[in-house]
Design a protein around this nucleic acid. Sequence first.
DNA 1: TGACAATAGTTTGATATCAAACTATAATTA
DNA 2: TAATTATAGTTTGATATCAAACTATTGTCA
Lengths: 142, 142
Amino acid sequence: MKTDQTIFLIATARGAANDYLKQELKNYGLSGLAPTHGSIIFELLKREQMTMKELSVAIRRDKSTLTALIAKLESLNYVERFSSPEDNRISLVRLTEQGKELREPFLKISQGLVGTGLKEISVLERRLLNRLLKKIIANFEE
Amino acid sequence: MKTDQTIFLIATARGAANDYLKQELKNYGLSGLAPTHGSIIFELLKREQMTMKELSVAIRRDKSTLTALIAKLESLNYVERFSSPEDNRISLVRLTEQGKELREPFLKISQGLVGTGLKEISVLERRLLNRLLKKIIANFEE
DNA sequence: TGACAATAGTTTGATATCAAACTATAATTA
DNA sequence: TAATTATAGTTTGATATCAAACTATTGTCA
């Protein structure tokens, strides 16, 4: 049946969004940054400081992948790391001053992403989409 | 606005589906195969023979990635390559006998994927989902 | 027809990614 | 409190992935 292609379409849409992001990061002179790095910056623009674990969950990447990604962002002076005073196992990550300057370009990129991808899709349709996507995610998490 | 999280949800759903597939491939003793290899097999179960280019488009991966993926599938004796009689630039790919034996497990994995991910989502909702996802894909392709 | 452009694949180099093994610290429990 | 278990991160090794440069073949057009 034709309704089966949904998962395939989800993967395709994700790929298209990723390609778009890659291109935009380049357009904004942020080459060297992959979409995943962007996700991390994006989280830190919302949360101020986060543990590696929290970031790992938020962007859905293995913890070891996080280690590598943060190392890169650190080397580019976008983020800095410091260990938690309460628990020495935990290392916290936050944006540097230079990292905070990414707020504006990132907002624009984000708006462009949504504006482009969801063009001519009504708010009602978006809500419906979100509800169904959340359902699918929950189905897999079981 | 909250409707903006759609793209993020799409990426998350794709990640969840990918994790599911990875696990299932392992469960079926097909370790060593990544979901992408699965996509190639899946295409070849439908199309009999395809060019590298066609596969590249179908699974949305760079042509150089295809070279590597097919090389692996070839080394595992699941596919074989031969060049087109009409055009010597083109190399065609098809399943070997051993590759064709993947039909049954792949059908099961595919059914499991759809059954799990789309559980409790009606046909009507699936159609709607498909329509909106196609719209999003088209939006990015412009 | 001969030069130039287009197309199909491969090679190379760099990087994101995961899994598994490991280190270090904190929490639990006997 | 000593031993065990759990948790947070890192290291290591393997692989999927892309981009750019390259080879080889076909198509175009002056």
